[in-house]
């Protein structure tokens, strides 16, 4: 029980870390490869302390790793740590996508009906 709760909390916290919109942007940039913090500052257009704060959260959940390269610190995504988190959100996303796919069908029918009504008047 305790173990289950701890694991659930970890997933939830990790999900928070990657789901927050700014961190989603950082993820998107790092998906293109390793980057120093300055690149992230430029690409996101926000101040370095904020970027560092987001990176700290991402590192805490293992979503991002860092290594020293000379005088630079390079950040990169840790795909393996992200997998369960992606699974968590993607399933929720998928259930809505399936619902919306059905809604698309209903909307097509409504559009056809409306077009038909218009021409008969």
């Amino acid at each position: 029980m305790m173990l289950d709760m701890a694991r659930a909390a970890t997933t939830a916290d990790a999900f928070n870390a990657v789901g927050e919109p700014r961190r989603r942007q950082i993820r998107d940039v790092l998906a293109g490869g390793e980057r120093p913090v300055n690149d992230l500052v430029t690409q996101l257009g926000i101040a370095q302390p904020q970027v560092s704060k987001h990176l700290r959260v991402l590192r805490q959940v293992g979503a991002v790793e860092v290594r020293e390269a000379g005088r630079q610190r390079l950040y990169r995504l840790n795909g393996r740590a992200l997998k369960p988190i992606y699974d968590w959100v993607s399933e929720y996303e998928r259930s809505w996508s399936e619902r919306f796919d059905q809604l698309d069908i209903v909307l097509e029918q409504l559009k056809e009906k409306e077009a038909g009504d218009g021409s008969s008047e």
């Binding site: 927050e20 929720y92 996303e93 698309d104 097509e108």
Partner: peptide, 27 residues
């Protein structure tokens, strides 16, 4: 294929207590 899928739902978490779902429809 009567219906054209307009894309997948996008889910983000603006704060600790929120879920934001976004989707575009061709209608």
């Amino acid at each position: 294929m009567a219906a054209v899928s307009s894309g997948t739902a996008k889910v983000t978490l603006p704060t600790d207590t929120q879920i934001l779902i976004t989707r575009e429809f061709d209608a």
